[in-house]
């Protein structure tokens, strides 16, 4: 799609740790051995430890076992190839690029729980769009957390893009509305709206988020053109709860999987895909604004399993 530079090496780099822990062990567990119940049990245990989730892990291993019973596969290496195919099947071809408005500014609403990495992720998206010669504007709607507005302001200075901000303690929906007006009058291509981190269990805060979305729609009925949920890749099974509650309140169109450069195994991506069907659009693989990549499932799986 030309929006981001070639991804493969970066993902591999980001997933280094994943590979070293998961793949190496998967390889050690499976390679050069005939399949056995014990072997499958070890594989399941490794997958659970990589945050695939109990249910997903058991299903994937059950599929391998079924294929084994049908005599389609007989060795650990077969099982590994089979698992790769299975994972690839989780990600059918679909539109994982950003949707832009037909005319006027494209509005991208960004949300997530506290500390997921929203502001950094916004800086990353902003930089890549700016590098595409798009005129980008940021809206600092996190009026709750101390210094959140300043944090986005510093990014706007570093990236040389405009920012619309509100007062700490002010109404975030009002800031969003102002930003929409400013984006229109100043001929901005993309408006990225940063919101306060909120736990999905806080109903009133989720309501506030729906309100922000409604207010944006007052100005642009078609907007937001993208609703990005930022998820911390180290999160466990709770990420599925988060994604489903956010999806209910603001109809999430894509996921930004942040902090995949750590030791996160990325297994949670599979569970989220399975339960909710929301595509992962970006992955964050580092601290600088350049450390963002589009999510490419077959390359992601390939990177996970290549030695």
């Amino acid at each position: 799609m030309g929006l981001f530079k070639s991804a493969f090496n970066k993902i591999k780099q980001g997933l280094d740790k994943t590979r070293s822990v998961f793949v190496n062990e998967v390889r050690t567990i499976l390679s050069g051995k005939p399949l056995s119940k014990e072997l499958l049990k070890q594989l399941e245990a490794r997958m659970i430890q990589s945050d695939f989730g109990v249910k997903t892990s058991r299903e994937l291993v059950a599929d391998i076992e079924a294929a084994w019973e049908r005599d389609e596969i007989s060795t650990g290496d077969h099982a590994l190839a089979f698992l790769k195919d299975q994972l690839n099947a989780y990600w059918p071809a679909e539109d994982r690029s950003l949707h832009f408005a037909d005319s006027g500014p494209t509005i991208i609403l960004v949300a997530g729980i506290n500390g997921a990495g929203k502001t950094t992720s916004i800086a990353k998206i902003a930089k890549s769009l700016r590098d595409q010669n798009k005129k980008v504007m940021l809206a600092a709607c996190d009026t709750f957390r101390a210094a959140a507005v300043q944090q986005l302001e510093i990014w706007s200075e570093r990236l040389g893009v405009e920012v619309i901000k509100g007062q700490q303690g002010g109404d975030p929906a009002a800031v969003a509305f102002d930003a929409c007006e400013a984006a229109l009058s100043r001929g901005v291509d993309v408006l990225l709206i940063d919101t306060a981190g909120r736990l999905h269990t806080q109903k009133h805060l989720m309501d506030q988020l729906s309100k922000i979305k409604r207010v944006i729609q007052k100005k642009f009925p078609e907007a937001p053109h993208e609703v990005i949920l930022v998820l911390d890749a180290t999160t466990g099974q709770n990420a599925v709860n988060q994604a489903s509650v956010f999806a209910q309140s603001i109809d999430v169109s894509g996921i930004f999987l942040a902090k995949l450069d750590g030791t996160a195994r990325g297994g949670i991506v599979v569970a989220i895909r399975e339960v909710l069907g929301i595509p992962v659009k970006f992955i964050g693989v580092g601290e600088t604004p350049d450390d963002v990549e589009p999510f490419v499932p077959d390359k992601f799986v390939e990177a996970m399993f290549s030695a």
Partner: peptide, 12 residues
């Protein structure tokens, strides 16, 4: 530590 951390909580 974030209480929502997955299996990796132990590693960090």
């Amino acid at each position: 530590i974030d209480a929502m951390t997955g299996q990796d909580a132990v590693n960090s």
